[in-house]
Design a protein around this nucleic acid. Structure first.
Length: 382
DNA sequence: TGGAATT
């Protein structure tokens, strides 16, 4: 891997995958003795995907690593009753590669990639089974001094922990709210943890903790769903979250809110003008209907002065934080396979593309200064 | 007392 790419990736969080620890097998599908295909070394689960990432963007990102046998962005069935591909993204997906080496490469290069406000996680998918479902626990009443590590230590006696999290205060950024989540590998492990820890005081704690199965986040109220849609739409208009200073959290987007009791309540007009120009477009695209057309549509950006070692992951890393990226391409020399110094990035939304260009044009990457602009029909004449 | 982990 090139020095430049190594530098970028070294900033990523280190995450231990859940996957098999054995060495890679020779290429091709592995057939087990019972005749079933063993995809444990090719099939990946990808978590913490940005809410507005589409199936096409998902496939494009992971397809940049190697040939994909199949992939799926998991979507909500309730918000997509009439069309499964139109449901709201659940923020995770699966990628099954043809070659186990590419699965390994995807973990090494894409795990920890920052896209918009998320840091994606790429790991081997465990074999699908009923025993691993509903194994997530909600814990409250934790001492404010308890760290994630402390919590894991407390729960690890009951089984293998897949993820853990302690929620922190948004404002003070870092102070524990005393609530968290623990996901076990198996549901029965979670059950045992409830039996053993619910109502118990951790060592030195003043109050007992509550441990119970977590609600499924897909079972949201209409209000919560609409609020989330609205926030996503508002974000599309105002740009990346770190540039956003205004929230539209509880104002329904159209005349009527989901709560019948409030349906006649007028919407504060002062909060609408900034948002309304793109309301229809954003809401429609959130429903899975892309007004700008099928894959390939969007705003094409020309990126000049990339190093010979540049690859697609660099472009994802640079542009992903600004919004929805549908495609990236590094132009390479046919014989040497080295980057010819330029590439292209396609972004769905004009505002996000403009923000990316404004921010990245003149950006210093290693010892090079990038030139970033909308692609013109006459390519790049200086 | 609340975050998108099994197709």
């Amino acid at each position: 891997m090139s020095r430049m790419v190594t530098q970028i990736i070294s900033t990523m969080e280190t995450q231990v995958s859940n996957g098999p620890s054995g060495t890679s097998l020779p290429n091709g599908p592995v057939i087990s003795t019972n005749g079933a295909t063993d995809d444990s070394k090719t099939n990946l689960i990808v978590n913490y995907l940005p809410q507005n990432m589409t199936q096409e963007e998902f496939k494009s990102l992971f397809g940049s690593i190697g040939e994909i046998e199949s992939c799926k962005l998991v979507r909500d069935k309730i918000t997509g009753i009439h069309d499964a591909s139109a449901g709201q993204s659940l923020g995770y997906g699966f990628v099954n590669y043809v070659d186990p080496n590419d699965a390994d490469k995807a973990i090494n290069t894409l795990n920890g990639l920052k896209l918009q406000t998320k840091t994606i996680k790429v790991s081997y998918a465990r074999p699908s089974s009923a025993s691993i479902r509903d194994a997530n626990l909600y814990v409250s009443g934790l001492p404010k001094t308890m760290t994630q590590k402390d919590m894991e230590q407390l729960f690890s006696q009951y089984g293998r922990i897949i993820t853990s999290r302690i929620l922190v205060d948004q404002v003070t950024a870092g102070i524990s709210r005393g609530v968290g989540f623990i996901r076990f590998d198996k549901r029965n492990e979670a059950e045992e943890a409830i039996k053993g820890l619910n109502g118990q005081k951790p060592l030195g704690a003043a109050e007992p903790i509550t441990v119970k199965f977590a609600n499924n986040p897909s079972q949201k109220t209409g209000q919560a769903l609409l609020t989330q849609l609205y926030q996503t739409a508002a974000r599309r208009y105002t740009g990346p979250l770190h540039h956003q200073t205004q929230r539209f959290s509880l104002i329904p987007p159209f005349g009527k809110g989901p709560d019948p009791n409030n349906s006649t309540k007028p919407i504060s007009p002062s909060l609408l003008p900034r948002f309304s120009p793109i309301t229809i477009d954003s809401m429609t695209s959130l429903a899975g209907v892309n007004l700008t057309g099928p894959t390939g549509a969007g705003w094409c950006i020309f990126v000049y002065n990339l190093s010979p070692e540049a690859d697609e992951s660099v472009l994802w890393q640079l542009f992903g934080p600004f919004g929805a990226v549908t495609n990236v391409k590094v132009i390479r020399d046919f014989t040497t396979n080295k980057c010819k110094g330029f590439g292209f990035v396609t972004m769905t939304n004009y505002d996000e593309a403009a923000m990316a260009i404004a921010s990245l044009n003149g950006y210093r990457l290693g010892d090079r200064v990038l030139q970033v602009s909308f692609k013109t029909s006459k390519q790049h004449k200086a």
